[in-house]
Design a protein around this nucleic acid. Structure first.
Lengths: 326, 326
DNA sequence: CTGAAAGCGCTTACAG
DNA sequence: CTGAAAGCGCTTACAG
């Protein structure tokens, strides 16, 4: 692992293996790619495998990619690495990718606005993009694409959560606890998933008041503080994200409001934060989302028509919601 | 972005650009790589650039990699994606990499123990690995490597935090508040950084009691619950990670202990969690760690001797620590 | 059952 | 100042 050391002999090539095994390069390629049965004798195949093993041969990926015109690499584009949600998406997608012999590379986009970062459309066979607008991905040339947690009406197939069902369960839970006036601490992000949550709440709740905040504790705190200071404050606060719910929690605390005695709070995602604060929240199965999206993309790459599943999102009731005290 | 659509003409090559500009392939290469001054006339260069632009030409990375024998790609190996700490490391490293024209690919390792995942030693020019043992990275062939948050006595250069200084500040803070009997809720992970924290605490605290827990809220809860149930429980609990501190917080709460009245709690990392819980913690500058490590790796790749910086880690005092009540 | 040869798209040493 | 040619390491169609 040191820069110094014995002269770094260049890695063995298939030519070296051929020489070692006493066969031609083509035979080596056939054997190691597994396409040999019926074309190479079993004993020759064995000889080749042993020679490759002995030399520690690994095919040069650049050469293979050049020859084949594909890379077996998929790019997962996500809006931010910092959200554990996307880590879960990656885990699910990477599992399926690896089973199919594909690599999955994460690309946070944009890392720095107006920075020198470009979505590397060239070196990939396909793309997964989560929680963003499809047209923000426009590149010099089209790439097979599956969207996650995004507008299902787009050109690319999308894999989504059942936001409507989740909001239905959420509002039913709050209604059952006696809440009528409900606040919506909405994410100030122009993404389909948040628009969908807003319109589903609009449809379900008659007496709804909405404030917006960027997703962070401090911004959630400020927006919630303002809303909860109003004389006609809501008795329940639906937050678009667990992180916002943490901010809301702190605002309630600062205003001397007891949770859930005076105020019920809910989140979305079911992150580690939600468990930490005993937050009632909508569990979004992010890992499953990643897995299903990768499955859809592999279908697409093989010319099959991909499924466009809608995954159920379950309400997890913890201790941040309670009955309205009269 | 659709699978269907007009016949996907294969991407333009440098040959196409050469034909379009009426020059040779070599001239195209010279111009677009920026090595033309003094070798190609300014007007020809301009013609080539315009032709490339017109055709939407992008060099084929596989061909370039094959020809040059390098990929300008660096692999960042991290033990888990789910920790926001590593997202910050990535951000810092990616910034420096991009400025130098390198790509940075994240590789969580192992995603699944005994899974089909292999560190792709072949297609990269160098490796950054954070918070793990150097020898767990052993591959078929050595790759220029810089370790982060890892044993500085290893073969590879390491970039680290000043753990000793942090523990010194932390214990000074607790001593000043009157604490004498201190608990250490230690991460049950065999990594250098945690060993270092333990030994620094051993050196600084006379009356120390240690319990171990995997890094998660529930495990932190259990270990802390047991420790805090003892008749001679400590008055302060130093946790190896903010997540463990959350579990400790919940255990204190379950046992009817007031924080910080009855028990002081501290963490490490200064994640979003720490802000949420007003946790006194050691701020580890993860983004800076990533940036400095990438700088060291670029030095290594250019044959320069890399720096091995030790970054200061600042104690952030919030409301989870207080004076011992007598 | 096995091998010689072509060619993927680039960069660079060489010739002019 | 510009171009023809070689070659990186692979896979595959073709010939035997």
């Amino acid at each position: 692992m040191t820069p110094a050391g014995p002269a770094p002999a260049s890695p063995p090539t298939s030519k070296d293996v051929a020489a070692e095994a006493g066969v031609s390069q083509s035979t080596v390629s056939m054997v190691l790619s597994g396409k040999w049965p019926g074309r190479v004798s079993a004993s020759t195949a064995q000889t080749v495998r042993e020679a490759a093993e002995r030399l520690g041969y690994r095919p040069n990926p650049a050469a293979r990619n050049l020859r084949l015109g594909r890379t077996r690499t998929i790019l997962l584009v996500i809006p931010t690495l910092t959200a554990p949600f996307f880590a879960a998406v990656y885990t699910g997608a990477a599992r399926v990718a690896n089973e199919a012999g594909f690599s999955l590379v994460i690309f946070p986009w944009p890392i720095i606005p107006d920075g020198p970062f470009r979505v590397p459309h060239e070196a990939i066979d396909g793309m997964l993009a989560s929680s963003m607008a499809e047209d923000s991905l426009a590149g010099p040339r089209p790439v097979p694409l599956v969207m996650l947690d995004s507008d299902p009406e787009g050109t690319a197939p999308a894999v989504n959560f059942d936001i409507e069902g989740a909001v239905r369960d959420l509002t039913a839970h709050l209604f059952a606890l006696g809440h009528r006036r409900i606040g919506h601490l909405a994410a100030a992000i122009d993404a389909w998933t948040f628009q969908r949550r807003a319109s589903a709440l609009d449809a379900a709740v008659e007496d709804l008041v909405r404030v917006f905040a960027p997703i962070a504790i401090s911004t959630g705190y400020e927006a919630a503080y303002e809303l909860l200071s109003r004389p006609d404050r809501p008795t329940a606060l639906v937050c678009d994200d667990d992180t916002l719910a943490v901010g809301a929690h702190k605002a309630a605390s600062a205003l001397g409001l007891n949770v859930p005695g005076d105020l019920s709070i809910t989140g979305f995602d079911d992150l580690v934060l939600a468990e930490a604060l005993d937050l009632t929240t909508v569990h979004l199965p992010a890992e499953e989302l990643g897995a299903q999206a990768m499955t859809a993309l592999l279908d697409l790459l093989q010319g099959r028509s991909p499924a466009r599943p809608v995954l159920p999102a379950e309400l997890v009731v913890r201790r941040s919601t309670g009955r309205v005290e009269l």
